[in-house]
């Protein structure tokens, strides 16, 4: 079965400037795929290639087995897209947009669109030039979802949305994926990615820094460890083990990051005069930060 999205050796150069280089990705149908990276890392370039807005310098991108450049108009029959900053004509209302977009798509999307608009709390007859940024984003989501696409490409979908609508969007996206459709989601919001995504790719300076499932990422993400020592313990004599990094020491406590397995920590702790030990959740923020940092910055 063809992957919902397949990217092979994709490179895009803007003159001398690198957009992305040698990118390889495969997004399976029915999954929610997170696409992360700092500004300028190539996320939007990749998305624009998928939508046929940019022609790859080399390599290929396909959606549902169709080449994104050569068959762009066919690809978009089954794709819903919402850009990061959704802009629409000032005269457009949700009702009018559903009518026009439905005619272009040769599908009556008025009912499904109206239902979505109600769900997101969007007024049908409000003109776009009277909409706030968040309300425009809602319209963008309605137009991206109303034709029930097989692949949904969202660039920062929750930016500008209030928490209530964000929650409704997440629910809708989970249902969407459960029905077998695919969500390709670019985001800076890590909690959004953690809640929604099955798999994540991280881009850095136009190349793939990591691509794995979220559970794998959690496994090798560091955890915060807080160790309390009894007052009479000679803490200063105890050596910090190598799997605890960035250790902040006081006379009665250590706060550090655990790199490595919890087993190692437990074995080591069993032989120490510890009063209390607290191990936090895997810190994905920290992990992503390490991916985001360019090799130049890491030195």
């Amino acid at each position: 079965m063809a992957a919902a999205i397949a990217i092979q050796n994709l490179t895009k150069l803007y003159g001398d400037r690198l957009g992305i280089e040698g990118l390889n990705l495969r997004v399976e149908s029915g999954s929610v795929f997170g696409f992360l990276g700092p500004n300028g890392s190539g996320k939007t370039t990749t998305i624009r290639i998928l939508l046929g807005l940019l022609r790859p310098t080399s390599g290929q991108a396909t959606v549902q087995g169709l080449d994104c450049w050569a068959n762009s108009h066919l690809v978009k029959r089954d794709v819903g897209y919402m850009p990061g900053d959704f802009r629409v004509y000032p005269w457009m209302t949700c009702r009018l947009a559903l009518e026009i977009f439905g005619r272009v798509r040769q599908k009556d999307i008025r009912n499904s669109g109206t239902e979505l608009a109600e769900e997101f709390g969007l007024e049908s007859n409000l003109r776009a030039d009277k909409m706030s940024r968040g309300t425009r984003q809602k319209l963008g989501l309605v137009l991206a979802l109303a034709h029930k696409p097989r692949v949904l490409i969202l660039d920062e979908p929750s930016s500008g949305l209030d928490p209530l609508v964000q929650e409704r969007l997440y629910k809708r996206l989970r249902r969407f994926a459960a029905e077998g459709s695919t969500v390709f989601l670019s985001s800076h919001n890590l909690s959004e990615v953690e809640r929604l995504c099955d798999r994540v790719a991280v881009l850095r300076e136009g190349t793939l820094a990591a691509e794995e499932s979220l559970s794998e990422m959690r496994r090798h993400a560091s955890r915060r460890v807080l160790i309390s020592w009894p007052a009479e313990a000679a803490v200063h004599r105890i050596e910090v083990p190598p799997f605890l990094a960035d250790c902040q020491r006081t006379n009665t406590s250590w706060e550090a990051r655990l790199h490595g397995s919890a087993t190692e920590l437990v074995q080591w702790a069993a032989n120490q005069p510890i009063e209390d030990i607290c191990v936090g959740q895997p810190d994905l923020d920290d992990l992503f930060q390490s991916y985001y940092d360019s090799p130049r910055n890491q030195g």
Binding site: L53, L74, R105, L143
Partner: peptide
């Protein structure tokens, strides 16, 4: 004005 993204997300060739 940034509306090209909306237009070009439709299943229509550029020439059309």
């Amino acid at each position: 004005r940034g509306t090209i993204d909306v237009v070009m997300s439709l299943p229509v060739s550029r020439v059309r």
